[in-house]
């Protein structure tokens, strides 16, 4: 083995440890028994504990359901807003376009707490607090910058070359959209969908404030447990959270890779 390979392996191992160790701690926390100081590892592992929680813990299951429902709603709302916006930003020139494209990032620039307290105020005014629509609106607000960015990058890459070609060959504007623009945006849409899913799942403060406690998602429930020192149940939530975010991500990624290999 050459020195280069050894060096690279060491770097990879260090990074793997940095990422995997905290994950391992969470997994051990969720299934470990009698893990007290000064023990380095849990006294015993009860893998069944996690799965028993997953199938019997009503609170956990309702949180999972709430998280997934909100994420689903957010994905739909985000894509409905982000996709036309991205098309406008990528294909058209209009006055104030540069300013507009900067404004898309505002939700990430303005401090979250300032934004949220004011949004909560507005939501109360329009009696949207505690409603499903109100919560997905706030989630959408934080997802839009990522979704728009991913979609614009994808569209700009292709320019409107293929749309122009389609129109010249006789396609109507709608035919062009459904047969050309939409299929070619697939990588961008998949990226935006995944990012929206993750951002929505991780929203804590927004869900709590605007949701009025009606939507106790995984991240909302998890937080108090860690503060109260109930680490095992918090870890169960944590592992569930990781599974429902990582597994779809993995599936989508491998699907995309397979498509690329075809090409």
């Amino acid at each position: 083995m050459s020195r280069k390979v050894i060096q690279r392996s060491i770097i990879i191992i260090i990074f793997a440890l940095l990422i995997l160790m905290p994950l391992a701690v969470i997994v051990f926390l969720s299934v470990g028994q009698q893990w007290h100081y000064p023990r380095l590892f849990p006294g015993s592992l009860d893998w069944g504990y996690y799965f028993r929680q997953l199938t019997t813990n009503v609170e956990l299951l309702s949180s999972l359901r709430a998280s997934l429902l909100l994420a689903g709603g957010t994905i739909i709302l985000t894509l409905v807003i982000a996709y036309p916006t991205a098309i406008a930003l990528a294909y058209y020139t209009f006055p104030g376009k540069r300013l507009f494209s900067v404004c898309v990032y505002l939700p990430l620039i303005v401090p979250g707490i300032a934004l949220l307290t004011n949004i909560d105020f507005m939501m109360i005014k329009y009696s949207l607090t505690g409603t499903f629509f109100g919560v997905i609106c706030v989630h959408t607000l934080f997802c839009l910058p990522y979704a728009v960015k991913l979609l614009v990058d994808n569209l700009v890459l292709l320019k409107n070359r293929y749309e122009v070609t389609g129109r010249n060959l006789g396609a109507s504007p709608w035919q062009t959209f459904f047969k050309i623009t939409l299929p070619l945006s697939k990588p961008g849409l998949q990226g935006a969908l995944m990012m929206t899913y993750i951002v929505s799942m991780t929203q804590y403060l927004a869900t709590l404030m605007v949701g009025n406690g009606n939507y106790l998602t995984l991240s909302v429930r998890m937080f108090p447990f860690t503060q109260e020192g109930k680490y095992q149940i918090a870890a169960v939530y944590g592992v569930t959270f990781m599974l429902v975010t990582l597994v779809p991500l993995f599936i989508l990624d491998s699907l995309l890779n397979r498509q690329r290999k075809r090409g």
Binding site: N168, L169, G263
Partner: peptide, 27 residues
Amino acid sequence: KGILVFQDYRLFPHMTVVQNITFGLKM
């Protein structure tokens, strides 16, 4: 209306050759 053959051909990347060729007829 002239049918334009582009310099970079612009074959639709997500369609096979036969799908590309029949695109205009399908529309």
